[in-house]
Structure formats: C-alpha cells, structure tokens
Design a binder for these strands. Structure first.
Length: 368
DNA sequence: AATACGTGGTT
DNA sequence: TAACCAAGTAT
C-alpha cells in the first residue's frame, strides 16, 4: 500500500497544498452540508463561477432544514445561470431526505451518502473525505489527469471503466489520517499546476518523480477520446405582447418537469425541421400560429424577426428567431396552465435559462 | 457504454 | 474560430 514512492508523493503534495491552497469560501467551513453544496455546484463548473452562487446559496439556505423547507422555485432561482439544473432539484430532494431520515445531519456512511440524489462516486468520496476525513478516494477530472501523468497511464479517461481503476490507485495513495487535505491537494494540483494544455511542471512539487515528465510526454497525457460535435437545432419563438391590463408584458411559459432546462421559464416556441425551414420565416409564422392555437392561444404572429439568438449547450446548439405576436384584446388568456404574463417588474421572480434571460432583457430595455 | 444535461472561459 | 475544458451524475 505504501511504498517509498507513494509516501513521497503524499508528503510532498500535502506540504505544497498547505502552503499554496486557495482561500475558497467552502474551505472556511467545516459544515458537511456546506461541503456538500459546494461539491454539487462544482460538478463540471469552474471555481470562479461557483463562488458567488455558493455564497448566495448558503446565505439563503444556511442549513439542510432551510433547504428542505424552501419552495422549489426559490432553489431554482438561486441556481439560475449555473446550469445543469437537475443538480438543484436533486440537491433539494436529497436535503429533504436528509432532514427526514437523518435528522438534518449529512450522513457519514458510504452507503447512505452514495444513496443521496445527485451524489455519485466522486461526490460521495469528496463528502466523506473532506467533511469526515474518511480515507475514500474522490476521483474527478483533475485527479485522473494528475495520476495519468504521474504514473504515465494510457487508459482513456473518457471511459467510465477507467475511473474505477483510478479510484483504487487514488485510495492507495491517501496518507494515514490525511484524506481531507490529500484529496483536495490532488485536485488543487490539477487545477493550478498540472493543467490540461500546458502544465507548469517547474512549480510542481512532485515533478521529479513524474513518469510522464521523465519521458517528455506530459502534454500527451491523459489520453481522452474526443466528444461528439453538438447538433444544430433551429427554432421560432413567439414574443406575444399583452394589451390593456397586460400592456408592457410578455406571455411566457414554464418548461416541462423533466429534461432539458426542466421547470425553467421561456418564450413559447417551436422547432423548425432544419436549417432551410428556419430560413423560411413565412412558413415559421404559420407553424407557430398553429402551435399556439393548439395551446389555446389565438395570437397573430408577424414575419418580422425582432431578435435572434444562439445558445450553445454541450450536446446541442439552439438557433432561435424571435417573431412578435399580438392578441385580439386584453381579455385574452391562455387555455392551459403554465403560462404567465411577465413584465419588467415580475421578471426577476422567475428562473430563466440564459438565452431567454438575454432575449427578454433586451426586449424590456429596447421594446424591440 | 453511450448519451443527456448548461454555461462561460481559454486557446 | 472551433474545439476543448471545468471539483460528474442519471439513465
């Protein structure tokens, strides 16, 4: 388990970390709930992005109980703009479970923590080690990169199976009683020194024993197969302007409970068949009006494109043309639930995906 | 195993 | 600019 080389690795890494560690908000807390929140937010998300969200979140929901009791829209609103919104919904569902099953205390058992919604192998290890100092590995992208280089491993880190092996290796490296700092040190090294493109080996505390560095292969590793290109999706959105009591307001709707941007708010819109169909605005108008009728909305859509937006997701790219629409009179009301009239005064009480936040902000400022 | 799931920063 | 990347999880 602990030969000379692994002892060296852990000791040097810990010395470096204790000197160089960044002062991050969640590192100032020993509250397992705060550690948990930070780990969920940090999934696939940069530290700099997370900091303000983390501070607002724990300020508004200081304890598991506060989060468990909060309205879901409130939680979603505090996640707005952070992305991967199922994280927020899973976190609250898990908080409610912790409140009921564990008296509001984050469990310290591997099985219990791993059973929480949104907590996978990495996050479980992070919580157990950082909050409870248990010798569990926490293998994320940073750790796989560092280990791939230090031991010159050529397994494809894009493959799920690779993580399993990395976990055994990482576990074997944890110095006795130092799991919390060691796991964070490994990630910190990956984030600050052993970076993806051009690692700063000159400042690396373990460079002299790094196998990849010795062989001059530090920039070739880790091996990672390329992700597929995002698919283009074309859409027509309706900007339905209210009259009378709803003057200055726009009709918006809430997205379905599951899937992409679940439960977030948006402009009503339809998908065009392809890029060519998206160029045919007149046809878009007809299809948009028909779709609105299906929703119980008799609106007249104009062929004048008043806004255009592109939104890039990991797996798809939305191209949206915004077409203005008018309604017959102020008694107009949607037949289905999930629709609301929203003006500048109500705008901030809803949660918007980035695209629609931009589009609507632009509209309220310029009146298009 | 492969894909869905956001957003912003970097090269 | 078009990848590529960032403290992954659920299905």
């Amino acid at each position: 388990m602990n030969d000379g080389k692994t002892t060296y690795f852990g000791a040097e890494l810990l010395n470096w970390y204790r000197k160089e560690r960044r002062d991050l908000p969640w590192r100032r807390s020993r509250d397992p709930y705060h550690i948990w929140v930070s780990e969920i937010m940090l999934q696939q998300t940069r530290v700099d992005t997370v900091i303000p969200y983390f501070n607002r979140f724990v300020d508004r929901f200081p304890t598991v109980g506060d989060l468990a009791e909060a309205p879901e829209e409130d939680v979603l609103k505090h996640w707005e703009g952070l992305g991967y919104y199922s994280r927020a919904r899973n976190l609250q569902a898990a908080a409610r479970e912790v409140a009921e099953l564990y008296g509001g205390r984050v469990p310290n058992g591997k099985k219990e923590v791993s059973g929480l919604k949104g907590v996978g192998p990495y996050t479980a290890g992070a919580i157990l080690s950082i909050a409870y100092d248990q010798p569990e590995p926490a293998v994320d992208g940073n750790v796989m990169r560092v280990l791939s280089r230090y031991f010159c491993l050529e397994e494809d880190i894009a493959k799920p199976a690779t993580r399993i092996g990395m976990e055994s290796l990482a576990a074997s490296l944890i110095p006795e009683g130092q799991a919390a700092d060691f796991n964070q040190a490994l990630m910190e090294l990956g984030a600050m020194i052993c970076t993806p493109k051009s690692p700063s080996c000159d400042f690396c505390p373990v460079a002299i024993h790094c196998a990849a560095k010795r062989e001059g292969r530090e920039k070739e590793l880790p091996i990672k197969t390329k992700a597929k290109k995002a698919r283009d999706v074309y859409r027509f959105a309706a900007l339905i302007e209210g009259v009378g009591a709803h003057a200055g307001q726009v009709l918006v709707r809430r997205r379905p409970d599951t899937g992409l941007l679940a439960k977030m708010w948006e402009l009503p819109h339809i998908e065009a068949t392809d890029a060519a169909a998206w160029e045919d605005v007149a046809e878009g108008v007809r299809r948009l009006e028909a779709a609105l009728v299906d929703e119980g909305l008799g609106a007249s859509v104009s062929a004048r494109t008043v806004g255009e937006a592109q939104h890039i997701f990991t797996h798809l790219v939305w191209h949206i043309k915004v077409l203005p629409a008018t309604v017959a009179d102020e008694r107009f009301a949607p037949a289905r639930t999930g629709y609301e009239w929203v003006g500048p005064e109500q705008f901030e009480s809803y949660s918007w995906p980035n695209v629609f936040r931009k589009l609507l902000t632009e509209y309220f400022v310029n009146r298009m």
